[in-house]
């Protein structure tokens, strides 16, 4: 008897809440504050022109580019992730790295697939590493941040190709070295500004080191790129 009472006790609070008969239980569950306008907004994407849809996404991507260029520890890059920007940057970088020296030879620079694999698998491994170390960031958020933070390096690659048109002497190498070093520092700084806060304080260095290595290797690929003559 006592046991039965004990068992029923957790629900004692619930039993007090009696739903009176005259309130209908059915109906639609919606927040009364302006649900109609929200729904209209969502539905309106169906009949908007395709151009607007694409432009809206592009604007979101561009917005994130600006966040990478001015890393100020905001969470906008983390809140709604997308992988369009990383894909765009990765393909651009891989295409710019094509046409390198001795392309037919095995000893040449990285091929398109190699760049692609290094960037994606590299960011996946870094993400797994930070998750295994106890990070609170979600998998795709981290991929998104790492992908977007390649932006400075992609810009450096574009600059390097322009410099290489002028010639490939010592001066050109010095300019490329400076540009690549600066963008490598920028990438590392930007990504750690977004990622390091989500880690336990004792493990920040352990998370930052792989990120550093990742951008260092990408920076190395950009710096050693030399066009075929």
């Amino acid at each position: 008897m006592a046991a039965a009472e004990e068992a029923s006790r957790p629900f004692a609070g619930l039993s007090d809440v009696s739903i009176s008969e005259d309130i209908p239980v059915e109906g639609d569950i919606s927040v009364p504050l302006g649900p109609s306008t929200r729904r209209d907004e969502e539905f309106s994407t169906l009949d908007e022109p395709v151009k607007e849809t694409i432009l809206r996404d592009l604007r979101a991507v561009g917005n994130k580019f600006i966040h990478v260029l001015y890393p100020k520890r905001s969470t906008a890059l983390l809140r709604d992730w997308d992988l369009w920007g990383p894909l765009l940057l990765c393909v651009t970088l891989a295409l710019l790295l094509q046409g390198g020296a001795a392309d037919s030879d095995d000893q040449g620079g990285p091929q398109f697939a190699e760049v692609f694999v290094i960037i994606w698998f590299g960011s996946i491994i870094i993400t797994l590493n930070s998750k295994l170390l106890g990070g609170t960031i979600s998998f795709f958020q981290s991929l998104c941040v790492l992908g977007y933070c390649i932006l400075p390096l992609t810009v450096a690659m574009a600059v390097c190709r322009i410099v290489l048109v002028g010639g490939s002497g010592t001066v050109s190498f010095a300019v490329r070295l400076v540009v690549v070093t600066a963008s490598f520092g920028w990438s590392t700084f930007a990504s750690t500004a977004f990622l390091a806060d989500n880690q336990p304080p004792d493990r920040k260095a352990l998370v930052v080191y792989p990120v550093f290595l990742f951008y260092f290797v990408i920076g190395w690929m950009i710096l050693t790129f030399s066009p075929s003559q």
């Binding site: 390198g100 020296a101 001795a102 030879d105 095995d106 000893q107 040449g108 620079g109 990285p110 091929q111 190699e114 690929m221 050693t224 790129f225 030399s226």
Partner: peptide
């Protein structure tokens, strides 16, 4: 000599 990155 022509420099190559020797990525392989």
């Amino acid at each position: 000599y022509k420099y190559t990155p020797e990525f392989r």
